[in-house]
């Protein structure tokens, strides 16, 4: 048997994880690590293999290759010992539709010797308002909060949250994020999948960007944002759509002889990347004035996580 070579503090370690459905590699040699007392985000576009990866870590799927260790144990072979220590929030909720919300939470709590205080948990996630409503009648956000409560009610050491903020209004989202931060402070290893950049930026200590079943970039948010091309500030410009980006690119290039990339990722929103300096802004606004264009907004800043994500995974729809 392979020994557990996880460094101390590593709560979840996946090495070379592979999972195939119908001859297609959904997860293809994926490496991932999550530490206790930290939030690890698995970020990726739809179909990237995020859910399959966490389901292998939860013991719900048996990998076709590679190893997974959670708290040093095999999620499938050692399931009996792991289940009391691991909390799971599934993407589709996993809530029976015919029971009341409060009854469902009490039922999951009955599986643990020393569950969290249900009153306190219900209050902080705002479950009291719909405790007597059947799950069938709950809104998407209410179901998400109930599923999160069920995931943490057993005081787990590791929590897997599959898209915890999907369908949440801003108030609910912040309540969920506060709870996740508190879990981290208590030393829980939190693994969450998301495609919300804000969620990863605000919460995650470490981000694994996943695409086509592999991790294509890993690091803290500042590390990811600092890496890659264009570490000098990018200019964001909002103006009327359809400006001649090639002409603007030439105009800026003529100024300093450098290479400039001007793009219009969505209509009326432009990015200008190159060796941005004080003179760049003057040249840019002069060009706009020549073309009788009034900018609604000009911002100078480094790349966001979304820029990194789109650079890594491409801009095409899938």
């Amino acid at each position: 048997m392979p020994t557990t070579d996880a460094p101390s503090g590593a709560a979840v370690v996946a090495r070379g994880l592979r999972k195939t459905y119908g001859g297609r590699d959904v997860v293809d040699g994926l490496d991932l690590q999550a530490t206790a007392g930290a939030v690890t985000a698995v970020l990726g576009p739809n179909g990237a293999g995020k859910t399959t990866t966490v389901e292998c870590c939860e013991g719900l799927r048996t990998p076709d290759g590679g190893t997974v260790r959670v708290l040093g144990l095999d999620p499938v072979a050692d399931a009996v010992r792991l289940r009391p220590r691991v909390g799971v929030m599934l993407q589709d909720g996993g809530l029976p539709t015919g029971v009341r919300a409060g009854e469902m939470l009490r039922h999951v709590a009955a599986m643990y010797a020393a569950p969290r205080d249900l009153g306190e948990l219900s209050a902080r996630l705002g479950l009291d308002a719909f405790a007597r409503t059947t799950v069938r009648r709950l809104s998407g956000g209410q179901r998400q909060r109930l599923a999160l409560a069920a995931a943490v009610v057993g005081r787990p050491e590791v929590v897997f949250l599959d898209e915890p903020s999907a369908g949440l209004d801003p108030q609910s989202r912040h309540a969920v994020w506060d709870l996740v931060r508190e879990l981290r402070a208590e030393g829980v290893a939190v693994v969450l999948t998301t495609h919300l950049m804000a969620e990863a930026e605000d919460l995650a200590d470490r981000v694994h960007v996943v695409d086509h079943g592999r991790v294509i970039a890993s690091g803290s948010v500042p590390e990811l944002v600092a890496s890659g091309p264009g570490t000098s500030p990018t200019i964001r410009l909002d103006a009327r759509p359809g400006l001649d980006v090639d002409a603007l690119q030439e105009h800026l290039g003529a100024l300093d002889g450098g290479t400039w990339t001007v793009a219009e990722p969505s209509p009326g929103e432009y990015t200008v990347a190159g060796r941005t300096g004080p003179a760049t802004l003057a040249a840019l606004t002069a060009w706009l004035a020549d073309h009788d264009v009034l900018a609604r907004r000009i911002a100078v800043g480094r790349r966001t996580l979304e820029d990194v994500f789109l650079d890594l995974t491409g801009r095409h729809l899938r």
């Binding site: 013991g59 289940r83 009391p84 599934l90 909720g93 996993g94 809530l95 029976p96």
Partner: peptide, 12 residues
């Protein structure tokens, strides 16, 4: 609805 999977991840 995923109920079987969710309950399978609890100590049940």
């Amino acid at each position: 609805n995923g109920v079987l999977r969710l309950l399978a991840t609890t100590p049940l």
